[in-house]
Design a binder for these strands. Structure first.
Length: 691
DNA sequence: AGAGCTCTTATTTTT
DNA sequence: TAAGAGCTCT
């Protein structure tokens, strides 16, 4: 049955009903891009394409879930929607690696490392490098090194092909670390996030058998947020559609804000050169914002040169003018925003209709204080609350080790947790033994645990107490492994928690009873999650799949339930919309950020993008186009920066908005005028005595 | 392991 | 300024 396209506008309909071959849909903000993807999927299904021959790739789990939801709704058929391949690039890559792991020599229980794990591996490599890099004293910024490794992988640069730039010490150390890092992952039987893209590409490019299996698997491939794809992702997509070229990508070059993370705007800018015979359709009618808001957005983005060029228009009417509020200082700015939020609420808006967007998380603190003072309820999106629940990661490390004894990172994590007298010196001895004999560290641990020969231990410089501790560990992990293989995930994990006395340890280590209880609850939460998994588990490798997918989930979503104002960075706001939006701190050195104006050497990961304000302008554009009905832009004339009060200039982007769209308010003037005369008199009177 | 000290550094972060 | 990291001492 054909899908009803009568409610689509002409370019939307053209995109939805496009036949085969490459298609680029340039979807301006609020132009109905998700609508186009979902309708197109429905259209293809209507033509008789089976659902398992269609793949739609996104960047976030959330986007994938929403899309599946909308397709299910459109079709009125959950079962068909469930058969579509709809997920993140990383999830697809994981599926492929799981199926083809043997070609790469990876065992069934292979691990997927998240960012925290990756940092651990880099630290490990640096430690092993110590006596080799002349300055063993150097305290490297581990994150900066990992960022370079990751950027290299995103750019599909192999370890041996990495080219350090002359004179950049971080490039130099990365050139040392990257090959060893990759070798470590391999020996641990682990893939990191970036490998989930890179390794499938290498397999597809290099193995005819694998290529034959996957290049025909999907007859139609769709990619959302295409402007955010990196080189490795482009290559993956190319491989998937190599035989038929049935590729639809949807994105907006004007919303490309992740080049600093390896996204290549060229993928969308030069799509037509990369995919022969490509069609391009522009969606320029905006269904989100009023004309004043769109005019401001269009005016700002028009200052960028490298773009396809779109002009958004809307039938929603002129709407209210944009308020440009100029505050004396940041306190006044934050206070006014809080008050104005409250006024909006009094005017009939829900709290959840309102959002405050900022460039840097640093700005959020003051805002939070003021919102609390004015009793404005809020939720913060993003922030740095990655799921760093140590106690959960500790338990997961035991599970990983039980499933994959090669996982040295997990072994190192738990070998002395809870404390069992196996300190760093002992671990180094185990590591040295493992290296010398070319066996895994777990095999060394097993050997030590079983050693009945005191002499052998002595030779290795290990005390009898260590042997006892390690044989206990081996017993615990072996028991766990047996339990897991028997399919009793919850029971054996609970047995583990008891065997290592985790609850007692958490209680002993926690500063308060409530903190202890929270950590225990986190562990219970993991057990609950395991129980839900166990209820629907199928297949020999189900628990492995569960653990790997856990790595791909970025922890807890912000709590969107409840009526609350949203606080988020401009980056975090992409894809969202609100009736009323406040963009705060529209000042030079904040937006555009100082770091993009004069980048510091250590951070100049990519010299070409480093001094590029166009990405900052796009960020501004993303912010403006989040607003449906009312936009506020605020700035302060002075701001405390590095502990000093400094004068601030309005953002160049603000000056790019035509004056007639802005209604300027001088908050300092208004504050002065608002002070009652009597108060003024007594204020001046207080100085009288000092004369 | 943890308290308390000094030193350092100050974007954005879908997986 | 002010938070986080690293260090020393108990």
């Amino acid at each position: 049955m054909a899908v009803d396209t009568s409610r689509l506008n002409p370019p939307q309909r053209a995109a939805v009903t496009h036949g085969g071959g490459p298609l680029l849909v340039l979807a301006g903000a609020g132009s109905g891009k998700t609508r186009v993807i979902t309708y197109r999927i429905a259209h293809l299904l209507g033509l008789g394409i089976p659902p398992d021959a269609i793949a739609a790739l996104t960047f976030t789990n959330k986007a994938a879930e929403e899309m599946r939801e909308r397709v299910a709704h459109l079709l009125g058929d959950r079962r068909t929607a469930a058969k579509l391949t709809m997920g993140t690039f990383h999830a697809l890559g994981l599926t492929l690696l799981r199926a083809e792991r043997k070609a790469l020599g990876y065992p069934r229980g292979f691990a997927v490392y998240d960012q925290a794990d990756q940092l651990g591996v880099v630290r490990e490599v640096l430690r092993s490098l110590k006596d080799f890099s002349r300055d063993g004293e150097r305290r490297w910024d581990v994150k900066a090194i990992l960022a370079r490794v990751s950027l290299a992988k995103n750019g599909f640069v192999a370890p041996d092909d990495y080219q350090p730039r002359e004179g950049d010490e971080y490039d130099a150390i990365t050139a040392e670390v990257y090959p060893r890092y990759q070798a470590a992952l391999r020996s641990y039987a682990a893939f990191d996030f970036d490998d989930l893209i890179v390794e499938p590409v290498r397999l597809l490019q290099g193995d005819a058998g694998v290529r034959a299996r996957w290049a025909e698997r999907f007859r139609f491939v769709m990619v959302d947020e295409y402007q955010d794809t990196n080189r490795a992702q482009l290559l993956l997509v190319k491989e998937l559609v190599a035989h038929h070229g049935n590729l639809t990508v949807v994105g907006d070059d004007d919303q490309s804000i992740y080049a600093w993370r390896g996204a290549e705007p060229a993928n969308i800018l030069r799509f037509a050169d990369m995919f022969e015979g490509a069609h391009v359709i522009k969606l320029e009618q905006n269904y989100r914002s009023t004309r004043h808001i769109l005019a401001a957005a269009n005016a700002v983005i028009a200052h960028n040169t490298q773009r396809h060029g779109k002009t958004l228009w809307s039938e929603l009417g002129a709407g209210e003018p944009i308020t440009h509020a100029v505050a004396q200082d940041v306190e006044q700015e934050a206070r006014w925003v809080a008050q104005e939020l409250a006024r909006q609420r009094e005017g009939g808006r829900r709290w959840a209709d309102l959002a405050v967007l900022y460039r840097s998380n640093l700005q959020a603190k003051l805002l939070e204080d003021e919102l609390r003072q004015h009793d404005v309820p809020y939720v913060m999106y993003g922030g740095q609350e990655f799921f760093e629940r140590k106690e959960v990661k500790d338990v997961i490390a035991y599970l990983r080790l039980a499933l994959n004894p090669r996982d040295e990172l997990s072994l190192r994590r738990i070998v002395n947790y809870p404390a069992r007298g196996v300190g760093p010196a002992t671990v180094e001895k185990l590591a040295a033994w493992s290296q010398a004999r070319h066996v895994t560290m777990w095999e060394v641990v097993q050997a030590v645990a079983q050693a009945d020969d005191a002499q052998a231990l002595d030779d290795a410089g290990l005390r009898p107490g260590v042997r006892r501790a390690l044989s206990e560990l081996v017993a615990i992990v072996d028991a766990l492994g047996r339990g897991l293989r028997d399919g009793a995930a919850v029971a054996s994990t609970r047995a583990l928690v008891e065997a290592i006395g985790l609850h007692d340890d958490l209680r002993a280590a926690a500063p308060s009873a409530t903190a202890a209880q929270r950590r225990i609850d986190n562990v219970e939460g993991l057990l609950g999650s395991l129980a839900r998994f166990e209820a629907k588990a199928r297949g020999a490798d189900a628990l492995g799949d569960y653990l790997r997918k856990l790595s791909l989930e970025s922890g807890e979503e912000a709590d969107t339930s409840g009526d609350k104002v949203v606080l988020t960075t401009l980056h975090g706001a992409k894809g969202l919309e609100f009736p009323v939006v406040f963009m705060v701190g529209l000042e030079e050195e904040l937006l555009p950020h100082a770091r993009t104006l004069s980048p510091q050497a250590t951070d100049a990961l990519d010299a070409e993008h480093a001094s590029d304000v166009s990405e900052e302008r796009r960020l501004c554009y993303v912010g403006i186009t989040r607003a449906q009905r009312k936009l506020y832009i605020t700035r302060a004339c002075t701001r405390v920066s590095r502990g000093r009060q400094v004068p601030r200039l309005p953002s160049r982007f603000l000056l790019e908005i035509p004056d007639e769209l802005l209604e300027v308010r001088d908050l300092a003037e208004e504050a002065k005028a608002a002070v009652p005369q009597a108060e003024l008199r007594s204020f001046f009177a207080s100085f009288a005595g000092d004369d």
